[in-house]
């Protein structure tokens, strides 16, 4: 199977305004003025272009002794935590997904105008958009895996736990340059910034967890307040 690529409209991603308030730290107590900014900016971005995602499958060899995943000539030192979460994978869906340049541009434009709160809100909308686009892609991968008699894991990215972000360079090498409009700089920073890359494990005996945040030690993660079970990969798209 070659590369599969998708383009999404913001409206079909079911971006939840409350989830964005949640990223800001609020529960049900989000001030109405701030919630209104979220709603207004979501409305303004409803025709945003450039929300794209794609994936391809690669067979893997897994070496538990050093928590190493091999794809052909490439070694991925994913660390103990990610290795265990991908355990029993016979292949992976290697993915790239982006919220697109337009959302990042809108955030920077607002910040530059001194509309700091609005710019911050749009920045968080970018986070949510890329996650919801990934939910769609995850469902696609799950459908193909099912047809093969397999299951899928959660999605994991370089930078997660002890998996070094620099390994994105070899991950990107499976795709054409600027795939989905995403490029990678020397420091392994993706542009547009609101982009994700990584692996979804596939195998007959892999596990999907509703909640994995407890496995990560990051003290500064936006998602640490988030409630479990944000995505159901078995849902129909």
């Amino acid at each position: 199977m070659g590369i599969k690529k998708f383009t999404y409209k913001l409206g079909e991603l079911n971006v939840d305004p409350d989830a964005i308030c949640n990223l800001m730290g609020y529960g049900e107590d989000c001030p109405p003025e701030i919630k209104q900014i979220v709603l207004d900016e979501l409305d303004g971005l409803r025709d945003a272009i450039g929300i794209e995602a794609g994936f391809l499958f690669r067979n893997v060899e897994m070496f538990e002794d050093n928590f190493l995943i091999k794809i052909g000539e490439h070694n991925y030192e994913v660390g103990k935590a990610v290795f265990k979460l991908l355990r029993n994978s016979s292949s992976v869906a290697v993915f790239i997904c982006t919220a697109g340049e337009q959302i990042s541009h809108r955030s920077k434009e607002l910040m530059a105008k001194g509309e700091l709160l609005e710019g911050y809100v749009v920045d968080l909308i970018g986070n949510e958009v890329v996650e919801r686009a990934m939910d769609k892609l995850h469902i696609e991968v799950n459908g193909i895996a099912k047809d093969l008699g397999c299951k899928v894991t959660n999605r994991y990215s370089p930078g997660y736990c002890d998996w070094h972000v620099k390994e994105q360079h070899q991950l990107f090498s499976y795709f054409p340059n600027d795939f989905c409009g995403v490029s990678l700089n020397k420091s392994a920073l993706m542009t547009p910034v609101k982009s994700l890359s990584g692996f979804i494990g596939i195998g007959e005996d892999v596990k999907y967890f509703d909640y994995t945040c407890h496995l990560c030690q990051s003290a500064n993660c936006l998602y640490s307040n988030r409630k479990p079970a944000k995505a159901n990969v078995n849902a129909s798209s």
């Binding site: 800001m24 609020y26 001030p31 701030i34 700091l116 709160l117 911050y120 809100v121």
Partner: peptide, 14 residues
């Protein structure tokens, strides 16, 4: 102390 979040800090800055 996590008594306010980023939006309040941004409003204060404004």
């Amino acid at each position: 102390e996590n008594k306010v979040f980023v939006p309040q800090v941004l409003m204060s800055a404004k």
